[in-house]
Design a binder for these strands. Structure first.
Lengths: 332, 332
DNA sequence: CTGAAAGCGCTTACAG
DNA sequence: CTGAAAGCGCTTACAG
């Protein structure tokens, strides 16, 4: 299923040794311009592509990255991260070898299988920003975490700027003239929960307002959104809700409808995630903050490629992006 | 990032040749039970795992499958297919090497990169059941299509039983006592559209009813669902809607709400897809037919593994699964 | 600048 | 039943 011609055929046709072909094509050794040209031309004619396996065998550069993902099938998140990672890898001439594991499946044998392939590095992507326990077999100097953090082991990590997301939501609502704003969220102990709430609180406080936060038991489902919104609405005047995520925001829409409130005229809503399937489908469309999944995938690969030279423990925080649809009213 | 010990170390420790180690471990040659035992034990102790690269180099079995996917980031579909494929591959000792391409990007260079790795076979997964043009470089005897079909080239293909899905929906509604049933769908020329409609029509007709179908311009979004439902409701009495997919079903909910109709009391709804993000989030939960994405991924890999022996052009049609939630009322 | 040779870690005829 | 040897397709010292 690939070009049959090997380096030997190229050498024969070009009238040089295979060593020279290797040098000419890789640009590593010293080769006269004339020879290089001729070899390249012949290689092109023959459609020669060096066998990555043979190359990896000798050189140690596998040109393959491992991608370990949790729950790839439940949300489009993992897909977006994967997409970004795959593109970045491809631009650098590498492929992605992928494995799916259950949450916290620290000793999944599939990870061993991946390591047996001696991938150059491993991208470990969680389904949501959380604290994880990484498999001990993963070399911390050859692993990059996405949307997660392992407090027990120093590894580079890429995640969304959760604080910034909360702050952005609060600012958008403030800009719309809203003063009675509630953040509806869950009680999970995750960076996403804490970060967004903190950003929200600080911006409102800085504006001289008293931030209101309603917390319900997680996870952040539509049902949780309905409950939290009901509680928020009953706790005092509210013109706008900042929901922990789009799913909860959908619950806010439902609870509003149940009470005869119209979004955004009676109640404005801001979500987080930009789940196309939800944000675009709601009526009116949901104004939300897109998580930088694709960018996180890209960045993780970039860090992975830089790893050999500059091992790092730093956490890259990537900004979310406000997507305006129609769920925020601008008050007078 | 992997066990350092090679076959040579195992041989030395076990006091045999590397040939014998290879035979004992692979089970391919003739080895005395005693020797086999000893070799296996030593290999275990040393945590030896044969280097898949070296193995592939000699044998031609790469133990790697290529997975080409469209639009992996938009829906969870691709993720589910990928998950099923990955599990099946893993059970057979193979890994998946993945590449994402744009729709109909027939000559994406990434596909060449994948082929350069000489994967044993390629799984080509479309984002929705449709007719595709496969890259000419893909060897038809080494490629399996998922959720798609290429009329110009004979290749094995795995897809949902679209007819059965339409029939199942119709039967469920009939079982609920509904007689005024409408199928809201789109005008796209895709197997999914035609198959579901056909199944729906035939079951209703067989029950002595006159099937009603309302078609609006595609794609099958929530907005399309609203429009089609409005048209259906205005065209005569309706107690139940079978929507082309969950997105359109969500539109049916919205249009019903706008008219003050309650789901399911005034209007029953059945969707297709079982998008968790939507079906579970709607109020009431959406009764829908889950597409067999994970199973399709599995099956594709199974076919791929059978390919060398028995090349085939056959189309495997996998059944959908009715997921009952709360959107269908049982009439008197 | 160019090439003969060794070797990456295995598997597979082949001989014993 | 066991092992020495060739070789998969390259890269990389090393010598010329």
């Amino acid at each position: 299923m690939a070009g049959k011609e090997g380096i030997r055929a190229v050498a024969a046709r070009a009238g040089v040794s295979i060593t020279t072909v290797s040098h000419a094509l890789s640009g590593r050794g010293q080769v006269s311009a004339t020879t290089r040209e001729k070899v390249r031309r012949v290689a092109d004619e023959l459609g020669y592509r060096p066998d990555p396996l043979a190359r990896a065998m000798r050189s140690d550069r596998r040109a393959v990255l491992g991608f370990v993902s949790e729950e790839i099938a439940t949300t489009p998140y993992a897909g977006s991260i994967l997409l970004g990672a795959q593109e970045a890898a491809s631009e650098r001439g590498s492929m992605l070898m992928i494995v799916n594991v259950a949450r916290d499946a620290v000793d999944d044998p599939q990870i061993d299988a991946l390591l047996a392939h001696q991938v150059d590095a491993v991208i470990f992507a969680s389904a949501s920003n959380r604290v994880v326990t990484t498999p001990a077999r993963l070399d911390p100097t050859r692993t990059v975490l996405v949307d997660s953090r392992d407090p027990l082991r120093p590894m580079p990590s890429v995640m969304p700027d959760e604080y910034g997301i909360g702050a952005t939501a609060a600012r958008r609502l403030l800009a719309g003239g809203h003063r009675d704003v509630v953040h509806v969220t869950v009680d999970e102990d995750a960076p996403a929960v804490h970060g967004r709430e903190r950003g929200f609180r600080e911006v409102l406080t800085a504006a001289g307002l008293a931030p209101r936060v309603v917390t319900v038991p997680g996870p952040g489902t539509t049902a949780a959104g309905r409950r939290a919104t009901a509680e928020a609405l009953e706790g005092g005047p509210v013109t706008a809700v900042f929901a922990f995520n789009d799913q909860m925001a959908m619950g806010t829409y439902q609870e509003a409808a149940r009470r005869g409130l119209v979004v955004p005229d009676d109640l404005s809503v801001v979500g987080v995630d930009d789940l196309q399937l939800v944000a675009e489908a709601l009526l009116p469309g949901l104004t939300t903050i897109a998580l930088p999944h694709e960018e996180m995938g890209r960045r993780a690969v970039e860090i992975a490629f830089g790893l050999p030279e500059a091992p790092t423990t730093e956490v890259a925080q990537l900004p979310g992006r406000l997507v305006e649809r129609g769920s925020v009213a601008d008050l007078a």
